[in-house]
Design a protein around this nucleic acid. Structure first.
Lengths: 187, 187
DNA sequence: TGAGAATAGGACATGAGTGTGTCATTCTGC
DNA sequence: GCAGAATGACACACTCATGTCCTATTCTCA
């Protein structure tokens, strides 16, 4: 752990994080035993990687924020206008729905957590404000509310994809269309 | 209880149900102690009204479904077309966000519960299909997905109202506008 | 193949939530 | 004001998730 982690350790760690994200996204009270089962790992092993529940929470928090920022950067790099950036972000993070839910479903979950970064939220707010200023988004609606709608749409879309109701290749197009048409400024 | 419940008993019962709805809407693992505190009642009293946790769950399930169906009936009575009905329902149940969340946030929560009625969902699906048939809603989108969007929008709206971000009197108009413009058929 | 890493499967103590009971106190309606 | 309803404040046993051990087994890589 101090030097180089073997490939085995990395895989096990990823499996636990993935399992935690999948379960905690929908029910933060899911037990460590459930997570261990889902990761196909014994509870002993889980505790070896993450001594206490909080350690796993923190690790997942950091990992989720990292994934999100990566998707964010990619979307920004591929866009020229604020509204285009927002749409690209929405499309990109449909696959990260578990992380989104874990991070944002309960506003108070990470209150006071030293690893928590509100940067994402701020950046998003700025983008929304910019899109409103340029007339692409309805200026009557509070940025906070717009963000809520964005996350909700992403969540519903991801759920539908998981349930098989919505084909994956149509997901991005659908969520962006609903977002754009539903929040477009009245002309 | 067998004959006529005193006004006191009814008020206490309502207070407990309201508290349970408010807490369980956001965190179904909230303890009975928390609910008792919120209802300004001792845990003893709560247990006197609802002997076990499941009894409170069932009671809240029944009560929530009842409230929802009442709002539903009112909306149906005041509307003539399917799309109009859907919009009226959305406006009417913004105030019932806690109940909506409690009922629908976890699809598996009431699986196998004898009190659970899927009628609401079916009726909603029928309305959505009708609205799609008449060209008011995009027929490319699965009714299940449309329902998910509706519930999400209702939730976000109710949250914003509670947080003070969105004035109550603007809530209905806002949520309906987003719903309609975001899901309208492309012409 | 052998050494060391990695894991599974327990036992055990602890704390929180739950369910049940009892008793004293407060409130309500006649 | 009084009887009975309604409630609050405890005490207790029980269950389950958590955290900490320890040992036997399996896996990985040199």
């Amino acid at each position: 752990m101090t030097t180089t982690d073997s490939g085995v350790r990395q895989r096990t760690r990823r499996a636990i994080l993935e399992a935690a994200a999948a379960l905690w996204a929908r029910d933060f009270s899911a037990s460590l035993g459930d997570i261990a089962d889902r990761a196909e790992v014994s509870r002993s092993t889980l505790h070896r990687y993450f001594p206490e529940r909080q350690a796993l929470v923190d690790a997942l928090l950091l990992d989720s924020q990292e994934s999100l920022e990566e998707a964010w950067s990619t979307a920004v790099a591929a866009s020229s206008t604020p509204i285009e950036t927002l749409e690209n972000i929405m499309g990109a993070i449909v696959d990260l729905a578990d992380r989104i839910l874990f991070l944002f479903s309960d506003p108070a979950r990470f209150e006071g957590n030293p690893h928590w970064r509100a940067d994402d939220d701020d950046g998003m707010s700025d983008l929304i404000r910019a899109a409103q200023a340029s007339g692409d988004l309805d200026a009557d609606i509070a940025p906070t509310f717009v963000m809520g709608v964005m996350y909700s749409l992403i969540y519903v879309t991801a759920e539908s994809v998981a349930a098989g109701t919505l084909p994956r290749h149509k997901a991005t197009e659908t969520v962006v269309r609903i977002f754009r048409h539903g929040l477009t400024a009245r002309s």
